[in-house]
């Protein structure tokens, strides 16, 4: 079993690689951060606290995540844009020998067409992370993206 220290670093490394895949536009690698089946949901904090089940984005398989990326690349109409995620320190808790939960604050700055850098989203990742044997290959069994606001500026194209 990993020490608390190693576990903390391992979680933060996973999250750092996750947001890098998004921010550096390596979206094709994004689904592989998840288990299959998985649960990826983008919700607002008020919907979450009221227990309302509809999400802005809901995916329960890696295939659905791949479809999101394919739609962004081939179907959806939106202006060129990129994100910059800034993450807070993760609060990590062990669930069992191979599963941990992590709560991590984030800010997402969005730049549309190389224009203004503006704060697009703030919130928390509530993650359940599963490790493989020998504590290798961590993946998100569940990633709940809880946005502090329910209001989206123009559209939400790239995943958070």
């Amino acid at each position: 079993m990993m020490s608390e220290f190693t576990l903390q670093l391992a979680v933060q490394n996973l999250l750092a690689r996750y947001v890098e895949a998004i921010d550096e536009d390596h979206l094709e690698t994004w689904p592989a951060f998840f288990s299959d089946p998985c649960c990826y949901r983008v919700v607002s904090v008020d919907n979450h606290e009221r227990g309302l089940p509809i999400a802005l984005i809901h995916a329960d398989s890696r295939g659905m995540l791949e479809d999101r990326v394919a739609a962004l690349r081939k179907a959806s109409v939106y202006e060129d844009q990129r994100y910059r995620h800034v993450l807070g320190c993760s609060l990590v808790k062990r669930i069992d020998a191979r599963t941990v939960s992590a709560a991590t604050s984030f800010l997402v700055v969005r730049v549309v067409r190389a224009g203004e850098s503006s704060l697009f989203a703030s919130g928390r990742y509530l993650d359940r992370i599963r490790y493989g044997t020998d504590c290798g290959d961590p993946s998100f069994e569940e990633k709940l993206v809880v946005l502090d606001s329910r209001r989206v500026d123009t559209l939400l194209a790239i995943p958070i």
């Binding site: 919700v43 919907n47 209001r151």
Partner: peptide, 11 residues
């Protein structure tokens, strides 16, 4: 029965 509420700012 309400299942979710979101809003979108359009410029």
């Amino acid at each position: 029965r309400v299942l979710g509420v979101y809003s979108q700012m359009l410029h």
